[in-house]
Nucleic acid binder design. Sequence first.
RNA 1: GGAGGAAUGGCCGAGCGGUUUAAGGCGCACGCCUGGAAAGCGUGUUGGGGUUCACGCCCCUCGAGGGUUCGAAUCCCUCUUCCUCCGCCA
Length: 429
Amino acid sequence: MLDPKRLRNDPQAIADALSSRGYVLDVAALEAMEAERKRLQVATEKLQARRNTESKAIGQAKARGEDIAPYKAAVAEIGEQLKANAAELEQVQARLQALALDIPNLPHAGVPRGADENDNVELRRWGAPTELAFEPQDHVVIGERLAGIDFDAAAAMSGARFVTLAGPIARLHRALAQLMLDVHTQQHGYQERYVPYLVHDHALEGTGQLPKFADDLFRIDAGKTQGGGEHYLVPTAEVPLTNLVREQIVDVARLPLKFVAHTPCFRAEAGSHGRDTRGMIRQHQFDKVELVQIVEPEQSYEALEAMIGHAEKVLQLLELPYRVMTLCTGDMGFGAAKTYDLEVWLPSQQAYREISSCSNCEAFQARRMQARFRDAQGGKPQLLHTLNGSGVAVGRALIAVLENGQQADGSVQLPKALAKYFGGDCITP
RNA sequence: GGAGGAAUGGCCGAGCGGUUUAAGGCGCACGCCUGGAAAGCGUGUUGGGGUUCACGCCCCUCGAGGGUUCGAAUCCCUCUUCCUCCGCCA
């Protein structure tokens, strides 16, 4: 959410900034609603003040033993007006809130302007694209040869976009997640967390998936009968990890907070029909090791650079060629002010494909969650900055390791760093 | 799943439908006192919002949301969380 004061005081400047992301802000409608809000709020609060003072006077009159019946009638009338006014105010505020929740974050000044992924800017590359002396196979074929990836069995019980892994491939999947967790906790200073995979709607509203992107989420109806509203399966551990500071005032001495969690992620993938239908690239369920940082505003861009470096470290250890992209204004996610994507080389596609995305959300999520800190001077609480990044997607890392390590005989050579986690350096048919 | 109990400021802890503008204590900050400190005394100390050039004024906030009432921390309803016991379970 954007700063409501800024939105109120300078809507045109915000509209201009948002146009670079393809968002159209109706300034006239906003200003009209805001004027109405102000009129109703001032009127309502005046009525409340009158009711308070007059009710108190009744109490004092009663204490003196006077007849209070005539006073009561007069104040009752205020009550009627107040009720009507408050109801109207509530409606206007709900509409303003709905609009505020719909508006994406403002892009940071350094973000390249552009319409879509074609306008993203390459920042750097690491390693050279893997060159194979034979026709590269994709992970589906490699997995079949090794009898370790089975889409049909998963489809039989769960439908399309699910997978089961077997034997060494399942073990490789586990080894990858373990390596990532160890790297981030031991080398990068993140605290490991175990988190819920089912969350309420307000948690998703805090990180920005709701109310706008409900179609991308799996909702659990059973929760509704349990009280406390329905649950959603988490689309990323960003949601539970970032919500750890919801409605908190964090002591500045505890900052930065750095969390890492390995979780499954569940995505309905609405609107992506026909994209990446083959293989494990785009699934309804996948594992991811997620990084979240909660920092002071002055340090959030420094933290973003560090975080993309943390994700890169994983690919370097896995000896996977990659490139780092700065996303343009039109390709960034809803809550991001600036985003780096990490794209890994896939020989079967002869292309770089996204395997991590690191974003600085500045105060966008913090404002929705009321996540704040108090500085050393002990003044008013200020909004934190939140960052999240994949460190990295486990399923896609598995694909990349299989495809980049494939050999002519159908076996797969594994990166050295994985040996102690996997218990070997190759997988053979 | 069943039966009870609880939730009040940074913390502890009072609170009869109206002198509560949430007592009192602890902690913290500032001031007085002191050579300096402690003790003592005094003042301040939740968070959010509105309005104003500003000083300021006002509204909301006692787990959450409704309701009753001229007036609710206090009465009623629903929910959440925690505690005790029983059952079930990993």
